Amino acid sequence: MKRIAILTAIFAAGVLVGGITFSRSIPRSLLAVASCDGNCFKPSDAAGLLMSIGVNLPAGLVPRAVAESAKCIGIQHWKPEGRYHVAFFPKRDVRNIMELQQEDTPYLLDCLALAREHVGAAGFKNYRFISNGPALQHLTYFHFHVVAK
C-alpha cells in the first residue's frame, strides 16, 4: 500500500512538472494517425517545442547563450554562416510571423533592443538581420538571426 502511494505521488509530481514546463508552449500535434493535411509532426516542430522550454530556463542554463533579457535570449548559432551568427528568441512561444498576436509585441521589441545592444557593442557595420518563413525554419519557433561576415 505504501509503495502505491509513493508511485502515485511520483506520477502526480511528474504530471505537475510537465504541466508547468509546457504551459507556455504552443500545442504541436505529435501524432497524425489518419491524415495530417499538411500538418504532420516534423523534426523542426520537435526542435521548436524544445526551444519553447529552453528559452525559459533560468539564466546561465541555456547552452551557447551570449545575451539575455527578461523577454529575449540570444544564442550563438550551431551552424554559423559567418564569423558572428547569433539567433535571438523571444521568451514567448510563437511559431512564425503569421501567428504573431498583439501580446507578443513587448517580446519582439525586447529582442530588437537586445540585438541592437549586442551588435552595437561588437561594433559591426556589415551584418544581416533576418528571419526565415515557416518553410525555411529549421526549428518551428519565431526568431531573428544576426549574421556578420
Rank of each mutant, 00 (worst) to 15 (best):
N132T: 08
A113E: 11
V146K: 01
L57R: 02
H77A: 13
N96P: 07
A135Y: 06
S44Q: 14
A59D: 14
N39C: 09
H118M: 07
V86G: 03
T140I: 03
V119A: 04
M1Q: 12
L112C: 08
N96L: 08
K79W: 03
K125L: 06
R92S: 10
L50S: 10
I75C: 00
L30T: 15
F124N: 05
K79E: 10
V33S: 13
N126T: 09
G123R: 11
H77R: 04
V66Y: 00
A87G: 06
L31Q: 09
H143R: 02
L61A: 11
C111I: 03
A113M: 09
V55E: 02
S25Q: 06
G14R: 09
I53L: 15
A113T: 11
V15M: 15
G60L: 05
L31V: 15
R116F: 00
S35R: 14
A121W: 02
G74T: 05
C72A: 13
D37Y: 13
Y141G: 00
D104Y: 02
A113R: 08
A9G: 10
L30W: 14
I26Y: 11
K79G: 05
K2E: 12
N56A: 06
F11K: 02
Y84Q: 09
D45H: 15
H85T: 04
M98F: 13
W78A: 12
